[in-house]
Amino acid sequence: MNLFTQSDGSLPSFFVFVSFLGPLLGISLGFDAINSEQNKGTLSRILAQPVPRDYLLNAKFLAGIIVVSVMFFALSFLVIGAGLIILGTPPTAEEFLRIITYTIFSIIYVSVWLNLSIFFSVRFKQPATSALSGIAVWLFFTVFYPLIVNFITKGLEPSKFAPPRVIYLYEKIKFALVQIMPNELFSEVSSTILVPTVRSLGPLTTEQVHGAIPGPLSLSQSLMVVWPQITGLLALTLICFLFSYLLFMRREIRSR
């Protein structure tokens, strides 16, 4: 499992790779889903056939997801296989399960971006516009949003001598603010799933930590820890899908 998370510094580790490439993959698979059909003039031809409109959106989404799934599973198995050959120690059943779970969650993560870019492709007529909007959102969340969060939290930072309740509250706010970033959600999910010793994601008070025995968690316990994050990712996916659905279903389909 260390193969996925650790690196010697010359190359980023596998899961950093995925969290970087995932959004790009999702955006590139979805950004011209609808508007390129429109620009080619095939959209009105297809919708003149007895096919419900939502089938088109579903098909575009599913096609992207299948491609991503095949790719991620192949990558994960390749890494496992390479590890087997090089190290000679097979992964335990739990490790294997963790890797599979991680792969499934990274597919969900990509589907967030895929749906977002499908939404943009429904919204914007030009593929270039929708691609750039997708990338803009991604950049916003990876670069600018953390900056903004920093600004806000700097302003709110209590003094060192503030009572523990205030510090706890501050940490809570800081944690909550980063939770709407899909990339943050995903990195929390992946680190918890791939590193069994991660026990908690948010701030903890001393009472909560008191008496805890440091040690690896079982997979089900790790899942419990990241359950809110997973729900958040799924919700983001659904919201994007819902919006593109709403926009597309009532739209007038003109040729070109």
Binding site: T42, R45, A48, P50
Partner: peptide
């Protein structure tokens, strides 16, 4: 709309095909 589209063939203005 689906039942109409079963019976009606429509050739849009400037039709496009998968190139």
């Amino acid at each position: 709309p689906i039942r109409v589209k079963k019976k009606v063939g429509y050739l849009p203005e400037d039709v496009g095909f998968y190139d």
